[in-house]
Amino acid sequence: MSQVFSKSPKHCAKQQGLTIEKSYKKLFFACSAVFTSVLAFIFLIWVILHPSKPQFSLKEADIYQLNLSGPHLLNSSIQLTLLSKNPNKRVGIYYDELQAYASYKGQQITVDTSLPPFYQGHEESNLLTASLEGTGLPVAPSFGYEVGRDQTTGRIILNLKVNGKLRWKVGTWVSGKYRFNVNCISVMAFGPNNIPTAPLSSYQGTQCSTAV
């Protein structure tokens, strides 16, 4: 008599489970390989192109008002003009969420002023202008003394700053957002006999520092 061998339902279920598990593993490794290839491709493009950070320079700054309205309250009005340049030959730059303000000896002396977002193509330059103002801004008790001392030396030094976020554009690919900070130093001379005469102006075209 011949013997008939048959697999139990339990044995079949175990084999089917192994098959499904192998399929999931294959799918996982395939997705991982595709994802790794995409990351490697993006990284390779990034290394080859190696985008340089944007360059900013101060073209003009004018102080129309900088006076105390109370013991520690400041009114200020400053007109700012910056030149922004994209030094990259193959990478464009989107500028987002731009904010400009002025500071003096570590104290912010104007409120944050928003600048419109814009796109800068390869090796393009753009002029940025902003009116920086402050009304009744609280300042340190030493503010009046510091300005008086600068008046004695015949010049006042301000920091003009721009903060924001940028995105790199390579072909149709656009990166995520990167925060950047621009700091420009403006040296302005007082009038004859060191008497403040509005506006105090700076035209020296100072190169600004940029951190990304």
Rank of each mutant, 00 (worst) to 15 (best):
C31F: 10
C31V: 08
S32E: 09
S32G: 14
S32W: 10
A33I: 01
A33F: 01
V34D: 00
V34T: 04
F35K: 07
F35P: 02
F35E: 07
F35C: 09
T36N: 09
T36Q: 10
T36C: 14
S37D: 05
V38Y: 03
V38E: 02
V38F: 03
V38L: 07
V38H: 01
V38W: 01
V38R: 02
V38P: 00
L39S: 05
L39T: 02
L39A: 08
L39Q: 05
L39P: 02
L39F: 04
L39K: 05
L39C: 08
A40F: 07
A40L: 09
F41E: 07
F41D: 07
I42E: 08
I42A: 09
I42S: 07
I42F: 10
F43Y: 12
F43K: 11
L44D: 08
L44I: 10
I45Q: 12
I45P: 05
I45N: 11
I45G: 09
W46T: 09
W46V: 07
W46D: 11
W46C: 08
V47R: 08
V47H: 06
V47Y: 06
I48S: 09
I48L: 13
I48P: 06
I48Y: 11
I48M: 10
L49V: 13
L49G: 04
L49Y: 14
L49K: 13
L49H: 11
H50I: 08
H50K: 15
H50W: 14
H50F: 15
H50S: 15
P51L: 07
P51S: 05
P51Y: 06
S52A: 15
S52F: 14
S52P: 08
K53D: 05
K53S: 07
P54H: 03
P54E: 03
P54T: 00
P54V: 07
F56G: 03
F56R: 04
F56C: 04
F56K: 05
S57N: 05
S57V: 03
S57C: 05
S57F: 00
S57P: 00
S57A: 03
L58I: 01
L58C: 00
L58P: 02
L58R: 03
K59V: 12
K59A: 13
K59Q: 14
K59S: 13
E60K: 13
E60I: 06
E60D: 10
E60A: 10
E60L: 11
A61H: 02
A61W: 01
D62N: 15
D62V: 11
D62M: 14
D62S: 15
D62G: 09
D62I: 09
I63R: 00
I63T: 00
I63M: 00
I63H: 00
I63A: 01
Y64T: 04
Y64H: 13
Y64A: 06
Y64E: 07
Q65H: 02
Q65T: 05
Q65F: 03
Q65G: 02
Q65K: 09
Q65W: 01
L66E: 02
L66Q: 05
N67R: 14
N67S: 15
N67A: 15
N67D: 15
N67P: 06
N67W: 12
N67T: 13
N67V: 12
N67M: 12
N67H: 13
N67E: 15
S69F: 10
S69N: 14
S69A: 13
G70Y: 06
G70L: 06
G70M: 06
G70D: 12
P71R: 14
P71A: 14
P71F: 11
P71W: 08
H72E: 11
H72C: 10
H72R: 13
L73D: 11
L73V: 08
L73Y: 13
